[in-house]
């Protein structure tokens, strides 16, 4: 319980720091809401007046508190680019699409990498392990966006299993959009599967050389008894932490892969907003993504503590 509270406090502090940084960072760059509303032709007087009116001349902490209050309620102000449209309404659908895409990718990773990692460790040195290892190493070297292009070419343009660029909004048909997202999800998941397989394999192998494994054998365990009864629980502890990183990487991967498959998610919106200097949108996305990463880390810390009795009692 003490551990939980400690982590919760850390979480809140981290979130505050991150929100402040992302607010402060975007307020130091030239160009603000007033300028964007009036355009470049506005006179200084007009600008000053509007800034005064919008509260942009207030001290930074004051503006931060006001912005944070809004942000907590989902109010990030208006987009610079699309006049009169709130950031929140711009974000709604892309957010859903990206969550869907990441979810599918994560599912693929868990379903494939865990059995494969265990098998690879179990048969370490045998052909299954060697082949998995080599393929993993090569896959990890393929940038997700190039992987996406290969998938587009092979499954889209050649085999016609999907139509590149013809994404169907989940509002129209949920399952059709899931169907389209399968290939982008593969592009995101494949390198991560390779990563997790390798990590899990090494983690299991590291555990297999521990002294307690010998003890377990001395009691008459079979080798699968040792693996499933003793080793796996130990080996999964670092993997859980690693998965937090993988989830963050999935989000990062989706930013790039959405571009390849023209999926209208957060990533695409982020890139176009950066190119268009639509800072309120960028700020909101950054805050969303970082918050998700921090919260996932928090959840993993708690999980870790549940799995490892050594941490539990500290």
């Amino acid at each position: 319980m003490k551990y939980f509270i400690k982590k919760l406090i850390t979480l809140i502090i981290t979130l505050l720091v991150i929100s402040f940084l992302s607010f402060a960072a975007f307020s130091v760059i030239p160009g603000d809401a007033a300028l964007s509303r009036l355009g470049k032709d506005a006179t200084k007087e007009q600008l000053l007046a509007l800034r005064e009116e919008m509260g942009l001349t207030d001290p930074l902490p004051e503006r931060y508190v006001r912005w944070l209050k809004g942000a907590v309620q989902g109010d990030f102000g208006e987009s610079y680019r699309y006049e009169g449209i709130t950031v929140q309404s711009l974000l709604e659908e892309p957010l859903f699409v990206t969550v869907l895409l990441s979810g599918i990718a994560l599912l693929m990773i868990l379903v494939f990498s865990i059995p494969l990692g265990i098998a690879s460790a179990r048969f370490s040195g045998k052909w299954l392990d060697v082949v998995t290892n080599q393929i993993s190493q090569i896959i990890m070297a393929v940038p997700p966006f190039f992987l996406g292009m290969i998938l587009t070419y092979v499954f889209g343009l050649t085999l016609h299993l999907f139509q590149p660029g013809k994404f169907i909004s989940p509002r129209e048909s949920f399952w059709k959009s899931v169907e389209y997202l399968i290939f982008p999800a593969v592009a995101i998941a494949l390198p991560k599967i390779a990563m997790v397989v390798k990590f899990l394999r090494n983690s299991v192998l590291a555990q297999l050389s521990q002294d307690y494994v010998r003890t377990a054998f001395s009691k008459g365990n079979t080798s699968s008894g040792v693996l499933y009864g003793h080793v796996l629980k130990n080996a999964m502890i670092p993997v859980v932490t690693f998965l937090a990183m993988v989830i963050a990487e999935i989000l990062a991967g989706s930013i790039v892969v959405e571009q390849v498959f023209s999926v209208p998610g957060i990533g695409r919106l982020l890139i176009s907003s950066i190119l268009n200097r639509d800072y309120p949108v960028v700020q909101a996305i950054v805050l969303y993504v970082t918050a998700v990463v921090v919260i996932i880390n928090f959840v993993v810390d708690i999980l870790y503590q549940l799995l490892d009795p050594r941490v539990r009692s500290v």
Partner: peptide
């Protein structure tokens, strides 16, 4: 398999390192 059934029933073993010879998570 027959040999395995002797381990832990007919013969037991104690090792040098008490700190690492027990499974930390059980």
């Amino acid at each position: 398999d027959e040999w395995r059934k002797l381990r832990g029933s007919e013969m037991g073993m104690v090792f040098q390192e008490p700190m690492t010879s027990l499974n930390p998570v059980l």
